[in-house]
Design a protein around this nucleic acid. Structure first.
Lengths: 129, 129
DNA sequence: TATATCAGTATACTTTAATATACCAGTATA
DNA sequence: TATACTGGTATATTAAAGTATACTGATATA
């Protein structure tokens, strides 16, 4: 279990890159929410836009492009009227659930350890507000 | 294995919060590198500063405060001359290795799937440059 | 006496991320 | 005919993140 982590000592480069790649996929305000909307199946642009409520089409467009370029989602255009564009997680994208689960496990455990009750955590503000 | 994730459908709030808490800990340019320097034991301010080379004391100070406020590291001041301040991962902080390992696993797998050779991944630039 | 060390802080600045608002063409519906 | 829908783009602006540079006071070393 700790093998990978201990290898960082010997050969840090590729492991650090791997972590950076992964963080890259989640970095920013909207990447995670967007991936979240796609966990249970493909969605169209406007569907995602409506589901996330406060996102601007500019941001959504930009982030979808970024995720596609990084091999996390695919984009399919269908010749309907009006045009339909579907976004879907790639195999790699689906495998992000391993990371998500580790995050959920840690997050819940951390809240249990550091909080008595469930409160939101904001940037630069301690967990235990 | 997928139990937690499937529960998101039924009761998304706490899981989303948990993921957000976790991302919070890694968010930004320096949090991960700082945590990285502490994986194998406690370090002093200047030691971390030297190890990360390009970080300014302002950023290091700010990020250390943030990590401390979020229960990821502890800060201990010793009455020496000159003063010594040691930073160390908390139990919760140490348990982040579960998340890190999931990230390493995904990152390596993703590179294997989407690249022929190992190249750095930058923001907004596809993995397969 | 001059310089270095410790752990930072203060101020100003640049760069990046995110938002606001308006708009496009083609078709369908009221 | 007017309005709404599709999947976006264009331009401008604000907010957030990160950097540069200089500095602190007490002590130790050269």
């Amino acid at each position: 279990m700790l093998e990978q982590l201990n290898n960082i000592k010997k050969c840090p480069t590729s492991y650090v890159l791997a972590v950076r790649d992964t963080l890259n996929v989640f970095q920013g305000k909207w990447k995670m929410p967007i991936i979240g909307t796609l966990i249970f199946g493909k969605k169209r642009f406007k569907e995602i836009e409506r589901e996330l409520e406060n996102i601007t089409p500019r941001m959504l467009s930009q982030e979808l492009k970024d995720l596609e370029a990084n091999g996390v989602i695919t984009r399919s255009v269908y010749n309907t009227t009006p045009v339909t564009v579907e976004y879907e997680l790639t195999q790699s994208g689906k495998e992000l659930n391993g990371v998500l689960e580790a995050m959920i496990t840690w997050g819940l455990q951390h809240r249990k350890a550091y909080l008595q009750e469930s409160l939101p955590v904001f940037k630069n503000i301690p967990v235990a507000i």
